[in-house]
Amino acid sequence: MKIKFNWRLMLLPFINLAAILCLLPFLPEQIPMHFNYQWEIDGYGSKLSFILMPLLLIGLGLLFQLLPHIDPLGKNYARFQKRVDHSFIALSLFMIGTELIMILAAASIDFIKPDILFQGLFGLLFMFLGNIFPKIKHNYFMGIKTPWTISNEDNWTMTHRFGGKLWFLGGFLAILFIVLPKELRTIALVIDLIVITLAPMIYSYIYFRKTRGYENA
């Protein structure tokens, strides 16, 4: 099968790389690359290593376009290819926003706190993903992966409907949590992430038991 790349989809990652290369001479030698749970900088990298982020985004863009050709259920991608493209654009904007947070921290510009910026980006990303989850068809790479969703298309559909609502709500709550004190905000965000990760998996199992059960149960 001939692989056709959507080069328009790669425009944003390449613009991101060009922008980082243009900014490179003006950046400090050390860029904040990691924050602890209190959003204090606890890890730095050279500004040359900062180029790895847009390169990683380009690599992800190429991978996203290979998925229909390497997935055993690749024929299903024709039913939701636009959702795949939109997911990559959303992920690109999230990663570019994360790069901006690091640049602002490197320049000691803190009129908007990095934790607030990141939590806002996190919330928007999960609201977006929650909105498209019900529209993602059965496949092996994208979506909520459990043994029960992968093995049964009905389970896949119902779990993604449930998970989509939960992820949208979880993203919305993540944005609301911004008003909390920093310590409570971090705890609330971690709990939020755990719930929206585990609850769809539990739902998938319960749906499996309800509709099929075990042969020897």
Rank of each mutant, 00 (worst) to 15 (best):
Y37H: 12
W39E: 05
E40M: 15
G43E: 02
Y44V: 07
L48F: 13
L48H: 06
L48D: 10
S49E: 13
F50L: 10
I51P: 03
L52I: 06
M53T: 09
M53G: 03
L55M: 14
L55G: 11
I58E: 10
G61H: 03
L63M: 15
F64K: 05
Q65S: 08
Q65N: 07
L67A: 08
L67E: 01
P68H: 09
H69Q: 08
I70N: 10
I70L: 12
P72K: 02
P72L: 04
G74D: 06
K75R: 11
K75F: 08
A78V: 14
A78F: 11
R79P: 09
F80G: 04
Q81I: 06
R83N: 11
R83L: 11
H86G: 11
H86D: 14
S87E: 07
A90E: 11
L93Y: 07
M95E: 08
G97C: 03
T98L: 11
T98D: 04
T98R: 02
E99A: 00
L100R: 03
M102Y: 02
I103A: 04
L104Y: 07
L104D: 08
A106W: 06
A107G: 14
A107H: 15
S108Y: 13
I109V: 15
D110M: 10
F111C: 06
I112P: 02
I116C: 04
I116L: 11
L117E: 04
Q119H: 11
G120L: 11
G120C: 12
L121Y: 03
F122W: 09
F122I: 07
F126T: 12
F128W: 06
L129W: 00
L129C: 02
G130V: 11
